[in-house]
Amino acid sequence: MKFVLDKKQERVTKEKEKKNAILKVRNLNIYYGDNHAVHDINMDIEEKSITALIGPSGCGKSTFLRSINRMNDTIPIAKNNGEILYEGLNILEDDIEVVALRKEIGMVFQKPNPFPMSIYNNITHALKFKGIRKKKELNQIVEDSLKKAALWDEVKDRLHESALSLSGGQQQRLCIARSLALKPRILLLDEPSSALDPISNAKIEDLIMELSSEYTIIIVTHNMQQASRVADKTAFFLSGDLMEYDETSKIFTNPSNPKTEEYITGKFG
């Protein structure tokens, strides 16, 4: 654990230098039918940083996360207004090619959801759709992304076995590898380790911190220790409102909103 903290400290110092906001959320509202799930969110997310979204169940944090790569499009009753500017482009517009967007903004879900195919094919599934067919190129990408997801050593001899034969933690890292294979710029993680045991959880956290040197990461988590360990900035959601958004250290040591303090000290949630 100490090692982890050191690594984070090191990164925080580096962090100070870059300030380019890759995502700018402006007056975002999301509705599920008549339910106004997310109210008027405004926040900037910096490139190559880790942002944690915390809050009690049903506070709108996952709904917000899913709107960033338009996964809410799959829910017919979900509607939204406002803007999410990705490099200055509002990605909520109708003329956005959602398929292309999701390649740049990848997502990993709470429950590991590998496809019922081989480990290798799990990674090449989207690549083949993109039109990459050359065996050599595919092999290279599979190896690279598994290495990045710290899974290569564990699976390199069994790439053609079913992904379902992996443990839960390995499955989740495979899901991360699968997203990385597309070379995304932003990675959305929806409680990626809540379904896993503590050891797998620690591996995923290490991985997330590793990845933040290359990717912008937004992570929804129920686990406040996780947020405080990995995130540069933390946003606290409550009943669809963004209550507080600041440096993680500030949120956890000296929150300005009394509700935030009540939540992080475990008074509710």
């Binding site: 490099e87 003329d95 956005i96 090619e97 292309a100």
Partner: peptide, 16 residues
Amino acid sequence: MTNQSEAVKERLVKKK
């Protein structure tokens, strides 16, 4: 910045 924005537009906006 504007250049970058143009590039994103090129990649993500549906072609007519």
